[in-house]
Design a protein around this nucleic acid. Structure first.
Lengths: 146, 146
DNA sequence: CGCAGATCGTTTGCACACAAACAAATGTGC
DNA sequence: GCACATTTGTTTGTGTGCAAACGATCTGCG
């Protein structure tokens, strides 16, 4: 009796709205909607690649994946689409023939220069419901669980 | 000169690691890894559908989408996969012939009863790096921006 | 030197996620 | 009652996201 009651109760006590994963997903959805509205020409992942290349210079695909938190298969797709739009350039590494070194093209650099400011505005708009203290707190706590 | 300097500076000031979208994505990645490890038989979206059906009873696909924060095209794919595994049952609504009413099957209810406790543990493990105060704060702030 | 293990890029398969367009059914206003 | 808008489910196309497996290459260790 106790066991059966406990089993039923656990399912009854599960509140989807209180699960961190569900809330994370909804927060991400709102952010993605803002991003797509302000920066329709790039996805967040594509901008992340441009940002890292701007910041760190030429990187191999795998390095780029580690820097942008994408696995190899995913980063390949993102880089392929940037290559197709000539926003990045790829060439084989002479020192390590497994590697494909990717770097910003002139157009890619110009686009990032133009969009960096908008990207910061997207972050600000996402955090608009919070005051300055809350923003710092949220970023700090998210970083701790990331 | 001033304009050129400002343009260059904005791009140089863009720090990917400080953008809320990038941090949200990394936090979500860690949570998804924990979820996949503890609950390999379901995706978070599939569990969310089972949870809402458990909580609210039979729902049409569109209602289900609104309750689980998925658009129509996405919820259809999720429901199709649950139907294929006989975890849910679908039947036409007699009162509104556009609607396809979805409800838990006996197996679906049993699976949710078994997994609800694990789902709560997944949330706890995701939040493990935080103390009790920080967990409440994080959920509250995320809810505000969602 | 030689080879076991690691790394790199790639492909395949599966699962979201959303925009856009569509047909069927329902609801509304006049 | 009837044109018109809305809702619902569906399909297509594009873009992540990750696991698994693969060949090519590199590296370290004996």
């Amino acid at each position: 009796m106790v066991t059966a009651a406990k089993l039923g109760q656990t399912a009854a006590l599960y509140r989807l709205d209180a699960q961190i994963g569900f809330i994370l997903r909804r927060a991400t959805q709102r952010h993605l909607a803002i991003f797509a509205d302000r920066i329709p020409e790039l996805t967040p992942q594509q901008l992340a690649v441009l940002a890292r290349l701007h910041e760190l210079g030429a990187l191999s695909q795998n390095q780029l994946g580690r820097e942008t938190a994408m696995d190899g298969a995913t980063v390949k797709g993102v880089v392929d689409r940037l290559l197709a739009r000539a926003l990045v350039v790829a060439e084989p590494d002479l020192r390590d023939r497994r590697r494909l070194v990717v770097r910003l093209s002139r157009e890619g650099r110009a686009l990032f220069d133009a969009l960096a400011e908008v990207g910061i505005a997207v972050s600000a708009e996402t955090l608009a419901p919070l005051d300055e203290d809350e923003r710092r707190t949220l970023l700090r706590l998210l970083e701790k669980i990331a």
